[in-house]
């Protein structure tokens, strides 16, 4: 049996007086890397929040294989194999880095020893060995982001949703991250959804891109197709013109 696909269908999310998502659909298969791009406020983070149960849907549905997961609590969705990182980093600040990562493995049923071993291995993979004993709060911004990724991986997820993982990293760090992330689907068979504003990173990393603007999908396809799409050029130029 093949692994199930994570699917969002016609998702609508409303905040008071604002339609943050207006009928967005997206599919993520195991082993694939999908990039979600779009101007600020276009609804990218909200889509991840909708998938992981942090915000309520006003319409549409989220399914994992033939199981509907929209309406479940974040914790139950997590236990079905969805892990995420946060745009505004959310580490456990008063705990050590290794405990931060250990927590994820524990939540998914590992024993304390096994969880610790998993955590140390992942910290090593992400080049964080030297930080293992530091408190979450004391890390640099780039390290915090890497710990969040290690923590998400410790849950051994089927799908990993990363919200701007490269934000605040320098070029060398971003390059290292690119290689780590690119290897994940083959290594672990997971499906990866990434939001980032770094177009260079996204073009090289993602198998497919989907572009949001004002809560709607305006383009989807390969990096080249998306780059040339008139609506995308319009959205980005438009937003830049609006910012100027």
């Amino acid at each position: 049996m093949s692994k199930p696909i994570l699917r969002a269908t016609d998702v609508v999310v409303e905040f008071t007086g604002l339609r943050a998502l207006d009928g967005v659909s997206l599919a993520l298969a195991p082993g694939e890397i999908v990039g979600l791009i779009g101007p600020n406020g276009s609804g990218k983070t909200t889509l991840i929040n909708a998938i992981t149960g942090q915000v309520r849907l006003a319409g549409g549905s989220i399914t994992l294989g033939d199981r509907t997961i929209s309406g479940l609590k974040p914790r139950d969705i997590a236990l079905l194999g969805l892990a995420r990182s946060f745009q505004i980093v959310r580490l456990f600040n008063e705990m050590t880095v290794v405990e931060n990562v250990q927590a994820a493995a524990l939540a998914h049923g590992a024993g304390t020893r096994a969880a610790r071993a998993t955590a140390l291995r992942l910290l090593h993979e992400l080049g964080l060995d030297a930080r293992a004993d530091e408190l979450g709060a004391s890390l640099s911004y780039g390290d915090k982001r890497r710990v969040e990724i290690a923590r998400a991986l410790a849950a051994d997820p089927a799908f990993l949703l990363l919200d701007e993982p490269a934000a605040g990293m320098n070029d060398a760090e971003t390059e290292a991250l690119l290689h780590t992330l690119a290897a994940l689907p083959a290594q672990r068979g997971l499906g990866l959804l990434i939001i980032d504003h770094d177009m260079g990173l996204m073009m090289r990393l993602c198998h497919r891109l989907q572009v949001l603007a004002f809560g709607k999908t305006i383009a989807a396809g390969s990096a080249d197709e998306v780059r040339r799409h008139p609506a995308v050029i319009e959205a980005y130029l438009g937003s830049e013109a609006a910012h100027a």
């Binding site: 992981t52 974040p74 139950d76 997590a78 456990f92 998914h108 849950a155």
Partner: peptide, 8 residues
């Protein structure tokens, strides 16, 4: 929020 997102 982060702890719940891990499945706690």
């Amino acid at each position: 929020v982060a702890a719940a997102a891990l499945g706690a």
